[in-house]
Amino acid sequence: MNAFRLAGDMTHLLSIILLLLKIRATKSCAGISLKTQELYVIVFMSRYLDLFRTYYSLYNSLMKIIFLGTSMCIVWYMRSHKVVRQTYNNDEDTFRHFFLVLPCFVLALLVHRNFTFIEILWTFSLYLESVAILPQLVLLQKSSNIDNLTGTYVFLLGAYRGLYLFNWVYRFFTENHRVRWIPWLSGLIQTAIYTDFFYYYIRSWKNREKLKLPA
């Protein structure tokens, strides 16, 4: 464990907690893409399969349970909670997210490190996570006013994988100089997809104005 990775995990945890608090406090999920939340549940389920097989550390197992639990809880709130589900804007959240799941799965079948069940699903989860934010970004472009909590949520979610990139550089130089293109490139693409959002988010924060993404 290194500072970059811990900072990355804490940023990721904070983003999810922030979203959960926003939904619970305001009893609203306006501006949040259910599609992205569902994609993240698929990412965590396909990545944390080894949760009960391989024990790395208490921290690792605990965080996996927290990520799985909170992401499913968010989807439950948006789909089934009697008040929150009314605030979900179905006809704005239009991204066909299953057009992301299938290609990522096929790509994982073609490009992977070992052809084993766990490895294929782990690789699939990396590919899927790199594009999972797209429905949310598309929804933000349509939103006239993005509330601060939602903007901060997306910012932290984007920042966590950026910190992981530093973590991989650090591990490369301090551990064993092994190249791992699949997680590295997936993480790079994932972070690159946020650059547009990062630019407008930081500019709105500097100019003290409302966050607005160009349509």
Partner: peptide
Amino acid sequence: AAEFSLKDEL
């Protein structure tokens, strides 16, 4: 030794 992978990460 177990082959190095980044699976010990989240």
